Amino acid sequence: MNLRVLGCSGSDLPGHHLTSFLVNDTILLDAGSVTSAIDLAAQARLEHIFVTHPHLDHIKDILFLADNLIEFFAGKKRPPLQIHGLPQVLDAIATHLLNDTIWPDFTVIPENSPVLTYAPMTPEVPVVIGGVTVTAFPVNHAKAASGFVLWEDDGAKNLAYTGDTGPCPEWWAFCDSLPFPLAHLITEASFPSDMERLATASKHLTPKLLRAELARLRAKPEIHIYHMKAPFAVQIQEELRTELTGHTYHLLREHESIII
């Protein structure tokens, strides 16, 4: 399984791109930064988008991606690009984004060959895409937010992605219940620990909160940190060095690729 980081920042600033990960060239985990990160040919290879939650920093490039791909669908009977997520997440996108007011509804255009379609998920019910299995599980963030676990080869290659989350004991119990040991974990550290009140109110993690969450997890995966708020990145990184002592971790960077 190949993971390419298109964006991993909690801030939209020059040199910092919003959350999106490309898996095996055809699957997106969230769509905060897609059209500015990969060329049109790579965009045309996409087949699936798994959305953790409908905050703009995780979905905004669905709009521009659909607009870019129109030429690949008009009159060509190509299967639509599937947007996967829990039903309330997809309903929010349909109601508030692809609603013919904010943006055209690309689930009905072009006529007879739409660019997009919705694929509702049920928690803990796997979706199989080629050789990749994906399952969703609720996390503590926006309404109906979820994380995802992806695996290949009966779990020999696997990755858990929390998406944005605050403290969530149920998620860690779910990860420990998997029929294989968790190997890789993408999770967040949005704010420094002295901003814990804001992190808690917005349902995010600090390095201190993340340490407490990882203590719930029996598995010892390699940890990949994303979603640091850029103004606090230096402080967050310093705190992670202390708080994640004993864990194997690294800070995700845009454009890097990771072999799972």
Rank of each mutant, 00 (worst) to 15 (best):
P181N: 10
Q82T: 12
K203M: 12
L69S: 09
P138N: 08
V127H: 11
G131T: 14
R78M: 03
I93P: 04
E196T: 15
H55F: 12
T117N: 13
G130F: 09
S33P: 00
W151E: 04
R4W: 00
E124I: 11
T26I: 10
G85A: 12
G10A: 06
F21I: 05
A219D: 14
H17A: 09
P14L: 06
R216I: 02
L251S: 00
D91L: 05
K157Y: 14
S20Y: 00
E71L: 09
A212V: 00
T206A: 05
I62D: 05
W171D: 09
M121V: 00
Y226T: 12
M121I: 01
C175Y: 05
V132S: 12
P120G: 06
T162Q: 01
G131A: 13
I83P: 03
R218K: 15
N24E: 12
P221Y: 03
A142Q: 11
P181S: 13
A183M: 14
E170S: 15
V51G: 06
E213I: 01
T245K: 13
D30C: 13
D91I: 00
Y118F: 15
G147C: 11
E213S: 11
Q82V: 08
F21G: 03
D91V: 03
P54W: 08
C8H: 03
F180D: 06
T165C: 10
A144I: 03
R216F: 02
L86A: 08
I102Y: 14
A74F: 07
P179N: 12
C8N: 11
P79L: 06
G246F: 08
A189K: 02
F137L: 01
I223S: 01
A156I: 07
P169F: 06
D30L: 02
